[in-house]
Simulated assay, not measured.
Amino acid sequence: MAMRQRLAVFWGVAAVAFAGAAVADDASTIPPREAVIRSLPSLHLLEPWWSSPVIYGDSTLPMQAEKDGPITGRLAFPATEILSIKDANGARTYELGKDVTLAGDGKTLVFTSESKVPFLTSDDLYPPAGAPNSYKHRVGHPEQNMLFWQGHWFHDRQVEITYRRKSTGWPIEAPKFAAEALPKTLARLRAKEPVTIGVSGDSITQGYNATGFTDGEPHMAPYPDLVAAQLQATYGSPITLKNRAIAGWSIAHGLKDLDNLLAEKPHLIILAYGMNDVGRRDPEWFRSQVAEFLKRAREADPAIEVILVASMTGNREWIHVPNEMFPKYRDALKSLTGPGVALADLTSLWMLLDHSKLHLDLTGNGLNHPNDCGHRLYAQAILGLLVAPAK
């Protein structure tokens, strides 16, 4: 791909990230640490989907595929028992049997007309060219627009379901406690010593579309804040979070900002890029940038440990986030793991969920950001490296 084309792709993604800047002023609406800690019991961050028999807060966006057809939602896994169904913003709850039924496959929810559940139709997904709250370049239809909203618009139309899943198995490699890769961080946590976490990333990691960032209900903090709060609550170690993630950034920006990040004296760095980089279709370039980041960080302080975050996938219908590139970028990160460097693989998790759910079920903006449920999954994957599973 020519450089001019690569820049056009990058700035296409960046523009989407920056489009939400008026919704939330950086981190001004993110709840304080004390409030985040109080919210932790309801978030079940240490009961991740890959090890818990109960799936807490699975998110779906009810859809009506055909005019006057059924309104349906999708579960990630077959359920044996539905425990609760509610709007993601808490506006209402739904009664099984009256408002919604569970289809025979155990994965499809069918909402009745009595439920008054918010829903979208297939036509809603592709607004006319030039329509507000839309973005160009659908795969195969480059002049067709796709539905896009910042803030908590999608969140306010999503439903969260808690249920017991039929099988307790997990079909892909699950996050594993990183005792060998992150020994220094874990030693500090166990000794209840102060830990400073430095964060470098893009709009996802800055917090976009978590309701604590967009000032929506229930004001859930973005995933870096969830990780810091859960570590503090679990270990009793004072956690300082220095989040330097910026919407629209590429790994190249993170590398340029590394000296500023190192000035924060982090013990642990969370490095989370990819969404704004896959459009280059150049995983080797991405690997070289991350490798240079790691080299310079080690030179500055050999004790620094790093968690590399392989990005969630984007909307496969949006041309700027070629989904076939995400696993290649994930593999580039995986090749850099070893002593002092661990991988939180959100790419594989999103690819797994793509088999059961729509991208819109977990989206915060329709294209390339997670919703509250997605931010919880990010936090669960990172915490899986830092908190030993209960015996």
Rank of each mutant, 00 (worst) to 15 (best):
M1E: 12
M3T: 06
M3G: 07
R6V: 13
F10N: 08
A19D: 11
G20M: 09
A24Y: 03
A24D: 03
D25G: 10
S28H: 09
I30L: 03
P41Q: 03
L43Q: 03
H44F: 00
L46N: 11
E47R: 08
E47T: 11
P48H: 11
W49K: 10
S52M: 10
T60F: 00
T60N: 02
P62I: 02
D68H: 08
S84W: 01
R92M: 12
R92S: 12
G97M: 12
D99E: 07
L102R: 01
L102A: 03
G106L: 05
V110S: 04
F119N: 11
D124G: 05
P128Q: 07
A131H: 05
P132Y: 13
S134Y: 07
Y135M: 09
W149A: 14
G151A: 07
G151T: 04
W153M: 08
R157C: 06
T162R: 04
R164A: 03
S167A: 12
T168N: 15
W170H: 11
A179Q: 15
E180V: 15
A181M: 01
K184V: 11
K184E: 10
L186M: 06
R190V: 14
R190I: 07
T196C: 08
V199M: 02
S203G: 05
D215R: 11
G216V: 02
P222S: 10
Y223R: 14
Y223W: 14
P224H: 08
A229P: 01
T234W: 14
Y235M: 15
G236R: 13
I251Y: 03
L255W: 13
E264F: 04
P266E: 04
H267Q: 06
Y273F: 14
N276H: 07
N276R: 00
V278C: 03
G279C: 08
W285N: 06
F286T: 01
S288L: 12
V290N: 09
V290T: 14
A291K: 10
L294Q: 10
K295W: 08
R296E: 15
I304G: 00
I304H: 08
E305W: 01
V306S: 02
I307L: 01
L308M: 07
L308I: 09
S311A: 13
G314L: 00
G314R: 02
E317M: 04
I319M: 06
V321F: 10
P322G: 03
F326G: 03
K328Q: 05
Y329C: 06
Y329V: 07
Y329S: 01
R330N: 09
R330D: 00
L333A: 00
S335E: 12
T337I: 01
P339S: 14
P339Y: 09
A342K: 00
T347N: 11
T347E: 05
S348D: 09
L349T: 13
L349K: 15
W350F: 12
D354K: 15
D354H: 11
S356A: 14
L358A: 09
L358R: 15
L360D: 09
L362C: 11
L362Q: 14
G366D: 06
G384N: 01
V387E: 00
P389A: 15
K391M: 14
